[in-house]
Structure formats: C-alpha cells, structure tokens
C-alpha cells in the first residue's frame, strides 16, 4: 500500500491515463501511472492483487492489475464497462486523471508455482486476474513447468483475445484449450463445458491449478480435478465481490468468515469449498 498507509489507508493518489486500449466491445485496458514519480517508482504488487481506481465525482472500483510486476512505468488495468464507475472509466482517454490506491489483497501463489506445471482454468468474459498470471509465467518461462490454459465461454462469440490465445499457444510447453457451451460457424474450439477440455489437456498430478470465473464453474472444475488426482490444496481461485473500502472494514465482500478484499481475492480452494457456489454467500 502506498503513502501513509497507516494513517491514510484509503487515500487516493493521482494517476494519469498513459494509454487506453479497446480489448472488446465492452472490455478495455487503462495503462496508468502515478503522477508522483516517487510513488510510481516505489509501487510494488503481485499478480492477482488489485487496485481501487477512483473516477472523480463518481466512485471507486476494484480492478485487478494485469501488467508485469517488474514494469516500473505502467500499471495496466483491464476493465469491463458495466457499472457507473467502470462505464465512466471506459470514456477516459490518454492524459485524463484518475485516483488510484493499492495494491490490496492476496495475489496468486507464484512462489509456490515455481518449477511446477501450472493449469489455468478460466470461464466467462475476459478473466483479467488470469491474464496477469499467463503474462508473468511466459516472461519467466524457464522458472515454471508446463503451462496449460483452458478457457470456457458460454457462446463462441464471447471469446475475446483470440489473437492472444494463438500467440500464447506458440510458446514452448504451453497448451491452450478453448471451449464454448454454444458453438458458432468457424468456432475452432470444443463445444461443451470447460471440463470437456480436460481429456486433451496435460493435467498431471502435482500441477498447481489457478481458476477464475463463475463460481458454479469453479466448483464443478474443482470436483473434476479432485477426481483426476489434483490435491485440493493445490487449487487456487480468484473471487469477485462488492467492495467499497478494500481494507477489510466495510463488510460488503464477505464470504462466510472471509473478507475477499483482505483474505483474497485469491483463495486456496479448501478455504472456500463449503460455500463456493452456495447461492447467497
């Protein structure tokens, strides 16, 4: 956390939009940089952590950081324009200012993942927290084992970053699998749920699994992976909840005893198993 975190834990700091990239009709990336160079230089985060991005006069939204932690110049935030804040953010252009505070929460277990095979399973539209892991691993290819990327979408047309998936699959020791519940002409992936990809994918015992997407999907996937010999403690998932403070105080993000902003957003599967996909929690 930046600045006088202990006395001003929620204070925003000015950041400037360096570049805005349209990823899909509703998804865009803001490349941000703190205007205070000292703040920017001292900022550290781990993939899977998030920032609160503040739009002047409107509000703040938790957005996961997808740039590389060693990039000292830019902080990339990939955002889906859906609510008041994120739709407002979607209208920003290079040079515009926002408020930024963070990073918050627990990121992906990348230290534990060193030297091991990684299986990344995502569902839904553009799973930003997972993209941060893929980029991290591909930039440090030699430190990790086999990388398996499995993405499921409802409809074939929902898939974004087609080109990126193609680029990723060209890396050595990378397997990319795509599945759509509903296919479409020209769909090159599998038609079915994301678990339909498992037979073709190199999911080996000892792999570390990271998941992101609808909770029901993650619950089904976790159960299937247990059947395939993956240890529950080697499965990690990124959760999404309403957040106002990001400092474990406001209470909106609770799942059972967990504050997602503070204890997550990345959780070990057994921590959430009992309530994962349980409607109302």
């Amino acid at each position: 956390m930046r600045g006088d975190a202990m006395t001003e834990p929620q204070l925003l700091h000015e950041a400037v939009v360096i570049e805005r990239i349209q990823e899909s009709p509703v998804i865009f990336t803001l490349r941000l940089s703190f205007t205070d160079p000292e703040l920017q230089a001292g900022y550290r985060f781990e993939p899977g952590q998030f920032n609160m991005v503040g739009l002047y006069g409107v509000g703040q939204s938790p957005i996961s950081i997808v740039s590389d932690p060693q990039d000292e110049r830019l902080l990339d935030h990939t955002i889906r324009g859906l609510g008041r804040v994120t739709l407002g953010l979607s209208r920003l252009a290079a040079g515009d200012r926002v408020g930024l505070r963070g990073p918050y929460g627990r990121g992906w277990p990348l230290a534990q993942a060193q030297g091991r095979d990684i299986v990344l399973i995502t569902g839904g539209l553009g799973c930003a927290p997972a993209v941060s892991v893929i980029r991290y691993v591909l930039r440090r290819r030699e430190r990790f084992g086999y990388l398996t990327i499995l993405q499921g979408v409802k409809h074939a047309d929902d898939l974004i970053w087609r080109r990126q998936y193609a680029q990723w699959s060209a890396f050595p020791d990378v397997h990319v699998g795509l599945a759509a519940d509903v296919g479409a002409p020209g769909w090159f992936g599998v038609v079915g749920p994301v678990t339909a990809l498992f037979d073709q994918a190199p999911i080996r015992a000892g792999s570390l699994v990271m998941m992101c997407g609808p909770e029901i999907m993650m619950r089904v996937v976790a159960a299937e992976l247990v059947r395939r010999g993956i240890d529950e403690n080697d499965m990690w998932l990124s959760m999404e909840r309403n957040m106002h403070c990001a400092t474990g105080l406001c209470g909106h993000c609770q799942i059972g005893p967990h504050f997602v902003c503070r204890d997550g957003p990345v959780f070990r599967y057994p921590e959430l198993k009992a309530l994962l996909g349980e409607r109302g929690f």
């Binding site: 929620q10 204070l11 925003l12 700091h13 000015e14 205007t35 503040g54 002047y56 006069g57 040079g95 515009d96 200012r97 926002v98 408020g99």
Partner: peptide, 14 residues
C-alpha cells in the same frame, strides 16, 4: 473519508 479537488486542467488532489 476523503475530499477530491479537480483543478481546471483536470489535475486531481486528494
């Protein structure tokens, strides 16, 4: 919790 001031040039102070 916080006050934000927007300068005419768009700069933000918190």
């Amino acid at each position: 919790l916080q006050t934000s001031i927007r300068a005419p040039d768009g700069g933000l102070r918190f």
